[in-house]
């Protein structure tokens, strides 16, 4: 059992990181008062543009093309999220409909472009990040094999972003203002803060972070754009809710969901995991989220003004 666990752990962490980024993005947006159901679509858009960037430059730039892919992805996500920001902040549109539209536009538009550019609906890249063991730390018993072997360098960036977010949201005045915009925007406005600007920042950060997550999928475990991220954006929304809109809760929720999904994915090849049918692991995150919503329905931690135009 130990050997199975230590062999699937690096995969679970690799799968968790993009989800963590998108869920954090969702957190910024929701905390500022804008529901962002378009996380899935933002990830798909970015998935395509970073694949394209890496594909076009990998022959000349070599390994640096991967870094460029990350950068392009983050910027593309931020730019595309402006569509949602404009609709839900300036035009006071229904944020659920706008988010759904973004998911649909992303799915259709990227395959449209991919077909035109490569002839098929896919964009394949040659390179990917090579997994590495961290020297010294990977020798620590128990923790070493679980957390410090076979890691991608992007994982450490993601964790750093998480740490910065924790600090930013709970310890700075910026974080306080952002959170207040999601609870009681008119009170914040009367204190002289520009609510629209704060909400724009929230949505753009959600785009940038889901963008970062989408590019991480590409350059770590996927290696090819194929038109979908298979519901990872929605899984992130589930993690955001299951984590009760808290930075620490999100880390736990995404990791929990990442493990469950990984077990389901590898149970075909590892017989000792076949005791429980994989379908239970796959639906677990969604059922758990529904149950959490029921359990916390009396004192919901959701931002009060989330989803309401100001």
């Amino acid at each position: 059992m130990w050997s199975t666990l230590s062999s699937i752990f690096p995969y679970a962490i690799g799968y968790t990181m993009p989800m963590l980024m998108a869920a954090l993005g969702g957190l910024y947006s929701e905390r500022s008062g804008v529901t962002n159901l378009g996380l899935e679509g933002l990830m798909v858009i970015v998935y395509f543009f970073s694949a394209l960037a890496v594909k076009l430059t990998e022959a000349t730039l070599g390994v640096n093309a991967l870094g460029l892919g990350l950068l392009v992805g983050t910027v593309a996500g931020a730019l595309f999220s402006l569509l949602h920001a404009f609709a839900s902040i300036n035009l006071k549109a229904d944020q659920v409909i706008s988010g759904t539209a973004i998911n649909m536009i992303a799915g259709a538009l990227t395959v449209y472009l991919a077909r035109t550019i490569t002839g098929s609906g896919n964009v394949r890249i040659m390179m990917g990040i090579i997994r590495k063991n961290i020297p010294v730390l990977s020798k620590i018993p128990i923790i070493g094999p679980l957390f410090f072997t076979q890691t991608y360098w992007t994982t450490w960036i993601c964790l750093l972003v998480w740490l910065i977010s924790y600090f930013l949201l709970s310890k700075t005045s910026f974080g306080l203002r952002l959170r207040a915009c999601g609870e009681h925007p008119s009170a914040v406005a009367s204190a002289g803060v520009n609510v629209h600007r704060m909400r724009y920042i929230g949505v753009i950060l959600s785009g940038a972070l889901s963008g970062f997550g989408g590019s991480v999928i590409l350059i770590t475990y996927s290696g090819e754009f194929n038109g979908t991220v298979a519901g990872l954006g929605f899984l992130s929304i589930a993690a955001l809710i299951f984590g009760q809109w808290k930075v620490l809760g999100i880390l736990g929720a995404t990791f929990f969901f990442g493990i469950a999904t990984t077990i389901a994915n590898v149970s075909q090849v590892i017989p000792s995991l076949m005791i429980v049918p994989p379908v239970y692991f796959k639906i677990f995150p969604y059922v758990a989220t529904l149950l959490a919503l029921v359990a916390f329905s009396k004192r919901s931690a959701a931002p009060l003004a989330s989803g309401q135009p100001y």
Partner: peptide, 18 residues
């Protein structure tokens, strides 16, 4: 590419929202 139809539908939803 055939995805133009889906793109048009999605865009119509966005424009209805806005």
């Amino acid at each position: 590419p055939p995805e133009i139809a889906d793109t048009i539908i999605a865009t119509i939803i966005y424009f209805t929202a806005t």
